[in-house]
Computed example of a mutant assay.
Amino acid sequence: MSRYRKIDPRIWNDAKFNSLTDDAKLAFFMLLTHPGMTALGAMRATVPGLAAEMKWTPEAFGEAFGEACSKGMAEHDESACLIALPNFLRYNPPESPNVVKAWVGAIDLLPECRLKTIVLQRAGAFAGGMSEAFGKAFAEAFPKAMANQEQEKEQEQEKSLSSSLRSELPAAGVAGSGAAQAVDLGQKRAEKAKQLEQRLAQVTDEAVAAYNSALAKPTGLLVAVHPTIGREKRQQQVKRCITLARQIAKDRYGSDHIPAEFWADYFAECARDPFRNGTGPYKPPHEGWRPDFEFLTRSDEMLKVFDRASSDEAAEVG
């Protein structure tokens, strides 16, 4: 861990930083100066754990942290418990090539995931941009074998994220042999990738429509989601929770895919909860915080709602 951090006073002139709420600014400074933050600008951490350190509720810290993420000032892989600050090295560059070589120790402290690969790629690009000596030091510390490992992890991550969607598509065989078979296989893969994107878009549209109907103004108290603006961001959010959503759909409806009914029932369940429907009350100093689409489609929130609904149903039966 690096003992000292540099904070550029010009941060107070930065439009993104100034657009944050006071809680989000404090959460960002907490991450920037956290004892666990490595010299690469990334660390192993969880939102509930950081909230406990701040003596905040997980919901309050999650909202503040989410603001920083939405502005591109922080990154988070919830499943791997990894948090990163994209601009960390810009203000905390390595003092010498030997420091770059010491990054090996820092990278070993980070959990394996796609975000870790991005952190390492970003560090390599930064070191290479400083000077030949720094670039050489990085190449010696992280040899070419890392490139193959990086590619394998990327493929594994994509396979994991897309498996739930892929299972909903019809299977396609490949006939023929040789070059013709290779071309046919490539075409089928491209077509399947297109189908996956279309299916993700459909699931996202169904989720947004159900959220707006059950919780958003004017019928509800929460901010409505625009159907087209920010669409890519919403699709990525839905993609992160889609594996859990499919598991719940399998349990609740006996379905191998996620029906529109799933989202209608899920957000209707959220609407019955004062904390999740915007009624509150929300304790100081977070009186102004309210849930939103991003918060309610987090995997941990979805699991809490499902567990509570299951418990309530079991109590009724009993």
Rank of each mutant, 00 (worst) to 15 (best):
S177M: 10
A80P: 03
K304D: 10
S163F: 07
R90V: 14
A42T: 04
G41D: 12
L222F: 04
N18P: 07
E95N: 09
V47M: 01
M302A: 04
Q237V: 15
E206A: 13
N148G: 13
V100Q: 01
S255M: 06
R189N: 03
F293D: 05
A15C: 00
E154F: 13
C113H: 04
F28R: 00
L169T: 08
D273K: 06
M130N: 00
R189I: 11
A15W: 03
N92F: 07
D77H: 07
T46I: 03
C81S: 15
V99K: 12
Q157W: 15
A147K: 08
D8R: 08
A315K: 14
E168L: 05
R298W: 05
K283L: 10
R5K: 13
A210R: 14
S162R: 03
G318N: 12
A268L: 11
F267S: 04
Q181A: 15
E313G: 14
A39K: 15
A271T: 07
A147D: 13
S160Y: 10
S213T: 14
A182V: 14
G220R: 04
T228A: 14
F88I: 11
M146S: 11
G280A: 12
D184G: 15
R90H: 12
Y4I: 11
V208E: 14
G49M: 01
A309E: 06
V104C: 08
D273S: 08
D108G: 14
Q149C: 00
L109N: 09
K136S: 12
F65M: 05
E63C: 06
T46D: 15
A127L: 07
G220N: 03
F306P: 01
A39Y: 05
N18V: 10
A15R: 14
A268W: 02
L40D: 04
L110F: 02
Q155C: 10
W56M: 09
L165C: 00
K192N: 11
F88D: 06
F88W: 15
V47P: 01
V203H: 09
A182H: 05
S96N: 08
I118T: 12
I7F: 01
W103M: 05
K233F: 10
G129W: 04
A315T: 09
L110N: 03
P35C: 09
